[in-house]
Amino acid sequence: MSRQVAVIPLVRCEVCQGQGVIKGIFHVMDCAGCNGAGLIDRATNQALSLEQMVQQLRVRLNRANRQVEQQREQLERAGLVPVTGPAADYQGNNKKGAGGAHFTGD
Rank of each mutant, 00 (worst) to 15 (best):
M53Q: 03
S49V: 05
Q46G: 06
T44C: 11
E51R: 15
Q74E: 14
P82E: 14
R66S: 12
G33S: 07
V59S: 04
C31A: 00
C34R: 03
M53F: 01
S2F: 15
L61G: 01
V5M: 08
V81D: 11
V5R: 12
D30M: 11
A101I: 04
M1I: 04
Q52E: 15
A64W: 10
Q91D: 00
Q17A: 09
R58P: 00
V7A: 15
V83F: 12
C16E: 00
M53E: 00
R66K: 13
R12P: 03
P9G: 02
V59W: 01
M1K: 05
E73D: 09
Q4I: 11
N35L: 06
V83Q: 10
D106T: 08
R12C: 10
G92H: 02
S49R: 11
L80P: 01
A32L: 14
L57P: 01
M53L: 03
E51C: 11
K23Y: 07
L39N: 00
Q17N: 12
V11S: 10
R3Y: 05
E73H: 05
V83A: 12
R42L: 12
V11K: 14
A87Q: 14
G97R: 07
V83E: 13
N35F: 07
M1W: 01
T44L: 12
A78M: 11
D30H: 09
G85P: 13
G20I: 02
R3E: 08
S49D: 08
L57A: 04
Q17M: 07
Q71I: 11
S2Q: 14
N35A: 05
A6I: 10
I22V: 15
V7N: 14
